[in-house]
Each structure stands twice: as C-alpha cells, then as structure tokens.
Design a protein around this nucleic acid. Sequence first.
RNA 1: GGAGGAUUCGCAUAGCGGCCGAGUGCGCACGCUUGGAAAGCGUGUAUAGGGAAACCUAUCGAGGGUUCAAAUCCCUCAUCCUCCGCCA
Length: 420
Amino acid sequence: MIDLKVLRENPELVRQSQKVRGGDPAVVDQLIAADEIRRAAVTEFETIRAEQNALSKSVGAAKGDEKTALLENAKELAAQVKAADAKRADAEEKAHQLLLQIQNLIDPAAPIGGEEDFVVLEHVGTPRDFTKEGFEPKDHVDLGKILKAIDTERGAKVAGSRSYYLTGPGALLEFALVQYAIASAVKAGFIPVIPPVLVRPAAMEGTGFLGQAAENVYHLEEDDVYLVGTSEVPLAAFHMDEILDELPIRYAGYSSCFRREAGTYGKDTRGIIRVHQFDKVEMFSFIKPEDAAAEHKRLLEWEKDFLKAMEIPFRVIDVASGDLGASAIRKFDCEAWIPTQNAYREVTSTSNCTEFQARRLNIRYRDENGTKPVATLNGTLVAVPRMIVAILENHQNADGSVNVPVALRPFLGVDTLIPA
RNA sequence: GGAGGAUUCGCAUAGCGGCCGAGUGCGCACGCUUGGAAAGCGUGUAUAGGGAAACCUAUCGAGGGUUCAAAUCCCUCAUCCUCCGCCA
C-alpha cells in the first residue's frame, strides 16, 4: 500500500500514476473522501471514549446514591461509545479497502504504455547463425526427447497439461543450475533459504498476490492455505510484523513455484516455457528506501552475470507502466534468445517494490527519527525450466548433443550432453 | 486424531474486575563516580492513530461477548510446549 501522507499532500501524483498503470484514477478521490470520513469518525469516537474513561473512574470512587446516579449516566455513555466505535470501524474498513486498490507510485523513469511499450536497454551476446552453421536448430521439446531429459507426454498423462518430467540429464541439469545459483548467491552475500511453499492467507495477501493475480494462485480449500507462485511470498513474509535492526538483508530462496496459468490457453502450449510447477532461485532484498534504486541495479547485475555464465545471448528490457505488478514501481526483465522461436523470451525479472509490500506486511527498520517501512526488491536468479530451454536450444549441435556452459561443468560432471 | 499446560513492554517474570499502559530483574541509552574500566548510584527505555500543541485514544497472542469499567470473567480461533496414537 502507498503512504497516505503522499496521497493527502499530492493526490495528483497518485492519480497520474494510477492512470499510466491502467488502474482506476477515480479510486484516488474516493479514498481521499473516505479518509476524511475516517478521521472524523476516529476523533468522534476518541472524544466520547475519553469521557467514558473519566466517568468510569469516578464511578469506582463514588459510593451510595451518588454512585447510582453516576451509573445511569455511564450506561448512557456506554451505548454511545459502542455506536461511535462501530462507525469508526466501518469508516476505517472502507478507507482501507480503497487504499488496497491503489497501486504503487510509478517510477518516473519507467516507460509509459502497455505490454508492447517496453524499452530495450541493452543486448548482451550474439545469437548464433544456424544457417551459416549448416543445420536447422531443434526446439527444446525435440532436444529433450533425444537427450531423454524432458518428458512432456508422460507429464501430461500423469499430471495434465503444462506438466513435465525432468529425467536423467534434465534432472541433473536442474541440480547443477540450482547449485551454481546458490553458490554464486552465497558468494555475493545472500543467505540461502528453503522456504515453505504452503502459506497462510496473511502471507499471500501481504505480498499482494490475492488482488488481480488471485486467479493464478492455487488455493487448498480444506486447510485454507495457498501454494506460492514464487518464493518472493514466504521470503517477504519471513519478517512480517518485525522491526529489522540491520539492513540490508538479502535472501536467496530456492523453492518450487505453482501457477494456475489461468487465461493463458493456447499460449506456449508446447514444451516447458509455461508450466504449472517449476523450481526457482529467487533473490530478495530488504533495504533502506533511499538505497532501493541502487539495489535494483545490483539485482539486475546479478541476473546478467548468471545469464552470461550460461553463455546465452539476451537483452534487458525496461518494462512499461501498464505491464507492472501492483507493487512494483519499476521492473527489468532479462529475455534470453530462443532460436526456434526467433525471439527473446523472459527468463528472469527484477522488481523494485519500495515500501509498498513492507507497509502491508508491517516490516520496519529503526533510525534516529523512529521506525519506518523498509523497501523490498526481488529478482529471479534462475527459473529452472526456462533456463533449461535456453541452454538446450542455444548450445545444441547438429547431432542433437548439447554443450554444457563452462560454469555448470563442475556441477554437472560432463562437458556435453549426448543423445541417449 | 486425543489429553493437558502456556501466550503480558528486547529477554525473563509480577499482576486482586476500577489505584494497571502495566511492577520487578536483566539488557540497552545517557549522566554521576573513576587515571581508565568494572561495580555502584541516578535518569530514561514499546508501537500505532488523532491533534498546531498541551494532550487524547488504542494495543497485555487474535477476534467476539459480559460490565459503567477487562491483562484480570466467558466464548471462538491461532501459535508454542508436554504426553498418547499414527506416520515419511
């Protein structure tokens, strides 16, 4: 949630932000009105309440007839307090609901527009020219079959569409990617974490995944718990309701991620680009708000380092305002070159959420002037299936074998994956 | 799944329905003391909301209820601990 003070002092800023994000600017004015009603209701309640507290005290001290008389008054007041309290609770709830609908204030540096209006920041590496090399590249599904690394047919048989098995070299590739990711994260100062993937509603709500994104979240009705779509959820909620003493804190969470992928029928139906379950190493930072922008750059650098180590050509895009999640003020995506699609596809993503998530989750830090909400940022280090796609397709040879990136060799134990 | 016990200010604890936003010890901060330190002594030490401010209001795991008045009584829930059963 945003800072109410900003809203009171500069409503136009919030209106503009809502507009470029594709949100509803009218909510801003509804909230301003609701907030005024709220404050009036609070004052009214507190005034009567103070009166009641004072009267109650005198009742305790009084005796006999005097007490009986005071009790009459007190009863009357008690009823008024109850009514005023109900009014206050109602006003607060209404204002809060509106507040939750306001997205984070857009970073003025972010490009304005929809999904197609991203700005390419840079290209790293050069896609291979397979024509020049004299063969037609196979897609990751075919390569996965040849190598006996990916089995989507049995995945569908057992678990339905968008499911898969990683077998043999595919499974080993995952372990190698994860180990390399965790090792480099630890070296960079991250604390490795294996978080729960089943979380209670408060964690899901606090991280903002029960809003517009709710349809993509698996919910286990019987136990009222959610399967997380990213370890961002348990990592952010880790410090819920806490005051942090030392910043920054950086975690690298390794977890399975679950996504319903509702509303993506017909999109990426082949292979393992878009699946219901995958494993991912996610970076998550708690940091002072004034350092958030610099941290965002650092997270991006770590993402780039990983892709460079995988020897994959990619580009970095600055995602446009209308395509940001509600809590991000700015988002950078790294898109890997996928030869058989002749396109760059998102493999990692990093968002600066400033204090937006921390306000909801009540995560603060202390400085000379008291406690303040921290800034939170997240970034993908490696999302396993998409990275496997990129590695197989970019490093394939004419015979269907695949060269293993040098960085992964110590973890995988071989230099080349050979067709079985 | 069953049976008990617990949850109070960073930690440990005290707490009779009104004198309890809450005592004590430890810790922490500042001051005195000292050549310096320790000890000792003194002072202070939660969070949030409203208000220009004085100040007021709320919070004793959470939510309801009883009452003029709840940390204290009642109900529901959550979490932790112990024991029994089952189990990777």
